[in-house]
């Protein structure tokens, strides 16, 4: 899977610590992100947001002239893009305030570069997925924009549930997604008692995407826990 298109996204970093801004910028640049702007306070961030029109904002909660939650509301009025909080305040209340206002994710300092990169990539992929609808697997390609699997010139349509399940797996490509999370993705809240249906759907998906559905390589089972989608090029 190529994530190149995501690397072109404009990212706005806001933190009152210049050293931290420098470090995060270097982490992102090393990963290949090319359009990065930084700001150290609410005022500067608002100005930068206007001129730069970011596609993702990474905000600190505590800023010298206000807090990150306020800033998020301000930014949301200017444009609809995801917001990730990066903060030294680890308390649960903050987490709820952040998510309550519609933050897309929340990372508590200190963090590992890989963690930050993964979360940013996940948010970008989730938000801007239509630009990369083609996902290459071992023996086929999933076309999310058309809800189809392309396999040796043949086009196989996906049902709505199959689409939801594959989408949930793809958003966490290379990582295990629990049975519960998959049930929730396909059947909504309180997804109890769908385990057998889930197994049936997974079997049907495998028939569409695997060369040998009884020996899956792309959509693998992790016994008792969940499933993992292995994507090519990652």
């Amino acid at each position: 899977m190529s994530l190149e298109y995501l690397k072109k996204k404009r990212i706005l970093l806001v933190d009152d610590e210049p050293e931290l801004l420098k470090m995060v910028r270097s982490i992102l640049e090393e990963e290949g992100y090319r359009q990065i702007e930084t700001a150290q306070c609410v005022k500067e961030a608002a100005e930068k947001a206007e001129s730069f029109s970011p596609e993702l904002a990474v905000l600190d909660v505590m800023l010298p002239d206000g807090d990150g939650f306020e800033l998020m509301e301000k930014l949301r009025k200017m444009g609809d893009y995801p917001v990730l909080f990066l903060t030294a305040r680890g308390e649960d209340e903050d987490k709820f305030t952040g998510f309550g206002l519609g933050a897309d994710d929340y990372i508590v300092k200190p963090f590992l570069p890989q963690e930050l990169l993964f979360r940013i990539a996940a948010i970008l992929r989730r938000t801007y997925k239509e630009e990369e609808p083609q996902v290459r697997l071992k023996c086929c390609t999933i076309d999310f924009s058309r809800a189809e699997v392309e396999r040796g010139g043949e086009r196989i349509p996906l049902t709505a549930k199959e689409y939801e399940l594959l989408n949930a797996l793809y958003r966490n490509a290379g990582r295990i997604v629990t049975i519960d999370a998959l049930c929730e993705a396909a059947w909504g809240d309180n997804p109890y008692g769908y385990e057998n249906s889930l197994m049936a759907h997974i079997r049907r998906i495998r028939e569409k995407i695997e060369e040998n559905p009884s020996r899956p390589v792309s959509l693998v089972t992790v016994k008792g826990l969940g499933y993992k989608l292995n994507v090519e090029g990652k």
């Binding site: 050293e19 995060v24 982490i27 030294a88 680890g90 300092k109 200190p110 963090f111 590992l112 570069p113």
Partner: peptide, 24 residues
């Protein structure tokens, strides 16, 4: 305790961030 742990988080981010980069 909350204050101290808060204040340690930012410098520690720097340590972890650069060390993580170096490792890669």
């Amino acid at each position: 305790i909350a204050g101290v742990s808060h204040d340690i988080r930012t410098p520690l981010s720097m340590v972890m961030g650069y060390a993580g980069q170096l490792e890669q």
